[in-house]
């Protein structure tokens, strides 16, 4: 049982790191926002594993709907692609 939790936690820690790096390397801002949302879901799982279910719930909602929502509205009002040069 403990091992299963640890395995999931390992995967999620890797997921957080990869998601964070991948989000910032994207040229497409919309895709970057979605990747940061994925990172948030992984983080929510880690919060669950760290015995903080309240925070898991909060992080899942805030990180996947609220913050990406605000930033996506910002992208719609500005431009979608990162500029070159």
């Amino acid at each position: 049982m403990i091992d299963a939790v640890m395995t999931v936690a390992y995967i999620m820690v890797i997921g957080v790191a990869v998601g964070a790096v991948a989000a910032l390397l994207q040229k497409d801002l919309l895709r970057a926002v979605f990747l940061s949302g994925a990172e948030s879901i992984a983080l929510a799982f880690i919060f669950q594993a760290l015995l903080a279910p309240d925070l898991g719930l909060t992080q899942a909602i805030v990180g996947t709907v609220l913050l990406p929502g605000i930033i996506i509205l910002g992208i719609f009002k500005t431009r979608r692609k990162d500029e070159d040069d």
Binding site: P53, D54, L57, T58, I61, V62, V65, L66, G69
Partner: peptide, 18 residues
Amino acid sequence: SGGGGFQCGVVVASAYLI
């Protein structure tokens, strides 16, 4: 149980956004 005022507000705001 888990949750509270902030979580409620965030969920309703998500519903509004959708």
